[in-house]
Simulated scan of single mutants.
Amino acid sequence: MTYSVAVSGASGYAGGEILRLLSAHPDIEIRTVTAHSNAGQPLVRHQPHLRSLAHLELQDTTPEVLAGHDIVVLALPHGQSGQFTDALADTPLVIDAGADHRLTDSAEWDRFYGGDFHEAWTYGVPELPVHGGTQRERLVGASRIAAPGCNASTVALSLAPGVAAGVIDASDIVTVLAVGPSGAGKSLKTNLLASEILGSANPYAVGGTHRHIPEIRQSLVAAGAVGDVRISFTPVLVPMSRGILATTTAPIAPGVSDAEIRAAWLDAYGDETFVQVLDEGEFPRTADVLGANTALLGLAIDRPANRVVIVAALDNLVKGTAGAAVQSMNIALGLPEGRALTVNGVAP
């Protein structure tokens, strides 16, 4: 069976990456692409690397244009996807790459986003440990999927095995992330200009203000965190177009051995294709995951500080967003999970 797809926000970074992946998917026909201010223009004017889709023209993002497809992917700015929920009620599968359907707590939505709150959809991080298994089981047959925030899924995947196994304390998490500016979208912003970021590293959303914090807490509670989940989260903008390198630490639970700590991550991800734990003493680079649907994790045990250190690298546009969406789509449709996805990055 071939599934017809419409992708909104197709002129942006996330929309473009979704299109790149879907263009190689044998079960998908990309029938419609939409945009807002760029409607009426050829797709390749804004995504010149997508040569196989040169025949497509960007249409207006309206319910009428998006309706009538088997799958609709909403790659819109936060707060804009929810308006299409009711209008797409007859669409068999809708995937939201924005934040509108990620959070279960309306108070958290009000605090970090504001505007109308919309119900949470099935979270699109298949490997994430949850009570009784992984998020993968919840995605089987899903009709509404919320793709993750890239920073949020990076940190959640880093910590969830330790939380689920009870080997770390989730009440004192510290994470610092080096992130590429593509995670902020394609809109023109002065702080994202090359002249502003080249040769510089710039922290932002410091002091508990980043919007992905409640999403991380939600994932860790689903993994079995007991008590308060407290996170000190500091992202740093660095001059690489894409990629995340997250260094996350948490206290070691009392009485836990080094072997038990490492076993928690190996048990969680040992059989996974797209989340891989590196050998002891090895740590990932963002260069090794560019273009891949792969998250690489390095684990260290810092006994003098009584903390576990997890270093995670992934491509924010692939495993962080578009790849997670396509992987979750495959699971929901009963297709091979890795179809149109690769573990291989691009080098140099």
Rank of each mutant, 00 (worst) to 15 (best):
Asp302Phe: 09
His49Gly: 12
Gly208Met: 06
Glu282Pro: 10
Pro181Tyr: 07
Trp109Thr: 07
Gly68Leu: 01
Ile197Gln: 09
Gly132Glu: 05
Thr91His: 02
His49Met: 15
Ile252Gln: 05
Gly114Arg: 03
Val275Met: 03
Ala268Phe: 01
Leu266Asn: 13
Arg138Glu: 13
Ala67Asn: 08
Val229Gly: 02
Ile244Val: 08
Leu314Asp: 09
Ala246Val: 05
Leu159His: 12
Leu159Pro: 02
Pro42Arg: 03
Glu57Trp: 12
Ala322Tyr: 00
Ile168Glu: 09
Ala170Met: 07
Arg20Trp: 00
Tyr13Ile: 04
Ala10His: 03
Trp109Asp: 11
Phe274Asn: 14
Ala6Tyr: 01
Pro148Ala: 01
Gly16His: 01
Ser200Glu: 13
Ala322Leu: 00
Gly12Glu: 02
Ala6Leu: 03
Asp267Ser: 11
Pro304Leu: 09
Arg102Asn: 11
Tyr123His: 14
Asp258Ser: 09
Tyr113Ser: 03
Phe283Val: 09
Pro235Ile: 08
Thr154Ser: 15
Phe233Ser: 07
Ala223Cys: 01
Thr104Lys: 12
Arg242Met: 15
Ile71Cys: 07
Arg136His: 12
Ile310Pro: 11
Asp271Phe: 10
Val221His: 14
Ser195Gly: 10
Ala222Ser: 05
Gly291Ala: 06
Gly208Phe: 01
Gly183Glu: 09
Ser4Asn: 12
Thr154Asp: 11
Ile252Ala: 05
Ile71Leu: 04
Pro336Met: 09
Thr248Trp: 10
Ala164Lys: 07
Asp315Gly: 02
Arg51Cys: 10
